[in-house]
Structures are given as structure tokens and as C-alpha cells.
Computed example of a mutant assay.
Amino acid sequence: MTEQTRTVQITFDCADPAALAAFWATTLGYRLQDPPGGFASWEQALDAMGVPPERRNDASAVVDPAGTGPRLFFQRVPEGKQVKNRVHLDVRAAPGLSGDARMAALEAEAERLVSHGATRLQRHEPAPPLGAGHIIMADPEGNEFCLD
């Protein structure tokens, strides 16, 4: 039996899909997913689908412009976040760097993301040989992620 690889989509339950999609697009350098073929905008597509105005922020998605990263999908749910994430994203903000240079790059990225609505939670100092150092953050709806 031949095993087949699968692609993944990362789904976020949230209160404001459009706002959270915009945050993650900024964080990762992604872009809002294009509307379906034949439509110049999402408004046109949603009008054609008969989606009422109060339901137009029920979902949103962002994609990697290069087409290599996973699609991020945001869906509105009625309940707020309750507990710490069991799975989280590591945003690779300092590839190839170590020590003070790495932590300075992570600090700069943390500052940039805070200006876009993120919250800084905790800094972990480098602890060689295995711990390179990272910063724990939360997106605007409280989902934890690491700057790594």
C-alpha cells in the first residue's frame, strides 16, 4: 500500500475572522485568499451567494503568496478561548541567528507584532545546547504562538 502525503489547513476558531485573518496575514507575509473565479471581489461573490450582511464575517482565509505554506482558515464561533493552546504556531523570525543577534531579531519582531494587536507573554533566554531562546506571544484573540 502506497502512502500519500497530505496538505494541511490550519483552522482558527475566533470571534472576528476578518480581523484575525488580517493579523496573521501581516505576521506571516500572507495575503487574503482571492474570491472565487468570476468575481472581482468578495463582496460580489457573497452577494451572488445570497450571504446576508450580518453573516459576511463568518469566515476568512489567508494564503501564502508563494503557494508553499499552509492555508489559514478563520471561522466564527460563539464561545471565547478558554484555556492554553495544546497546539501552537512557531513563527520562524530569526532563522540562522543565535545568541544576542537572535534575541534582538525576536525582540524587534515582537515589537512589530504588538503594534498590530499581539500581546507579549514571556521571553525564554537561550539555554544551550538545545534551547536557542524564544518569545511567547498571543494573537489579538489570545491564541498563543512563539517567535522562534
Rank of each mutant, 00 (worst) to 15 (best):
A138M: 01
E144A: 05
P140H: 01
R6P: 05
D58G: 12
A48K: 03
R92W: 11
P140T: 07
F145M: 05
I10M: 05
G69N: 11
D90R: 13
A110P: 11
S60E: 03
P78L: 09
R31P: 03
L28C: 07
M49C: 02
A61K: 00
A18C: 06
M1F: 13
T27F: 07
L89A: 06
N85M: 08
E125V: 03
P35A: 00
M1Q: 12
E107S: 13
E109D: 15
G131W: 02
D16L: 06
F145V: 02
H116S: 13
P95V: 08
V114M: 09
N143D: 00
A127C: 02
A104H: 07
Q122I: 05
V8K: 04
D47G: 00
F12G: 01
G80S: 12
Q82P: 00
R86V: 13
Q33P: 08
P78R: 10
W24V: 01
G131C: 00
F74E: 00
L106R: 05
E109M: 15
F145L: 05
L20S: 05
A19T: 09
L106Y: 13
R120G: 03
P53V: 11
P126Q: 06
E54H: 11
E141L: 01
C146G: 04
D13C: 09
L97G: 09
R55T: 10
T27C: 15
W42E: 04
R76V: 06
W24Q: 04
W24G: 01
A40W: 02
G67W: 08
K84H: 14
F23Y: 13
A22Y: 07
F145G: 03
D34M: 08
E54I: 08
R31C: 09
T119C: 02
Q122L: 14
I136M: 14
P128K: 00
A45Y: 07
G133L: 05
A132M: 10
H134G: 07
L147G: 10
L89P: 04
E54T: 09
A61W: 02
A59I: 05
A48E: 06
A48C: 01
Y30R: 03
M49W: 10
A59Q: 04
T2Y: 12
L130R: 11
M1I: 12
K81R: 15
P65A: 02
D100T: 10
L147K: 14
R112M: 08
E3L: 15
P52V: 09
T68P: 06
Q75N: 08
V8D: 07
S115T: 15
S98D: 13
P128V: 00
S98F: 04
D34R: 08
A59R: 02
C14S: 12
L106Q: 13
E107P: 01
A40Y: 02
G142T: 03
F12Y: 12
A21K: 06
P78V: 07
G80M: 01
L89S: 04
A25I: 08
A18F: 10
R56W: 11
D13L: 14
A19D: 10
R71G: 07
R31M: 10
A15Q: 15
P78N: 08
P95A: 03
G37V: 05
A48M: 01
S115V: 07
T68H: 15
A108R: 13
G117I: 11
L130F: 15
N143G: 00
P35H: 00
D34S: 13
L46Q: 11
H88M: 02
L89I: 13
E43P: 02
G37A: 15
G96K: 03
D13A: 14
A110M: 12
G29V: 04
E43T: 12
